[in-house]
Amino acid sequence: MDKIKIENLNLYYNDFQALKNINMSTQQNKITAFIGPSGCGKSTLLKTLNRMNDLVEGCRITGKVLLDNEDIYGNIDVNMLRKRVGMVFQKPNPFPMSIYDNVAYGPRTHGIRSKRKLDEIVERSLRLGAIWDEVKDNLNKNALQLSGGQQQRICIARALAVNPEVLLMDEPTSALDPISTLKIEEVIQTLKKDYTIVIVTHNMQQATRVSDKTAFFLLGELIEYEDTEILFSTPKDQRTEDYITGRFG
């Protein structure tokens, strides 16, 4: 079954149309990569999937986004939607508080108060983020004192702590060094069995390394959407080929 289905989606920032009639769907437990040159609308599309665009003034949307066959732009609780569809941002953005409180913020938001329960969630999430061993002895340390790569894994753990079904990642490694990048790619691979993941990336090697399917965007349009192997080996559209062979963008 389709986990997320996008139907005839158009998005406008005031008069500017940033997304043009997007139709696509992603399956449960698959990793989908969005690629395309800067400004083509990757982040914008990603943010429509958990309605982070609601925060942008002047942003208008037509069309549908279905999560488990339910229109998320219909009559739903946005906070519950964002609990189900978590997000990791391009720049690591831990809260200026302890590692523990960072990860516990989400569960506390959704009403979990028991210390034992929280301890459990924090440990499990940090393990999933492959950062537990590095921080288990200083959970009270301020998260801002960690390195960028560690901060990003804390942010992944924080997003996982609310037990989402879908994880959206907007260029999660673009601000990181190669070693941190590899660590995070490993994390993404292990998460696949339990989560549906959509990842935006500028790095085509990364897309081939981690994703099952890849979508190529250009100027707000979805040009080609295929199994990653096929898209990179035998692209159907000339523009896709030009992009992946580095002829523009």
């Binding site: 958990n50 982070m52 925060l55 906070n79 519950m80 939607l81 964002r82 609990k83 978590g86 997000m87 941002f89 720049k91 953005n93 831990p94 809260f95 200026p96 508080m97 913020y105 989400g106 938001t109 959704h110 942010c155 924080r158 997003a159 609310v162």
Partner: peptide, 27 residues
Amino acid sequence: VPNLLREASYGLGAGKLRTIFRIVLPS
């Protein structure tokens, strides 16, 4: 207070009041 922090809070499903009192106000 960086917008990134507000976004992180909303992204976890926190409402406006919680975001303001727990994230924005302390900073």
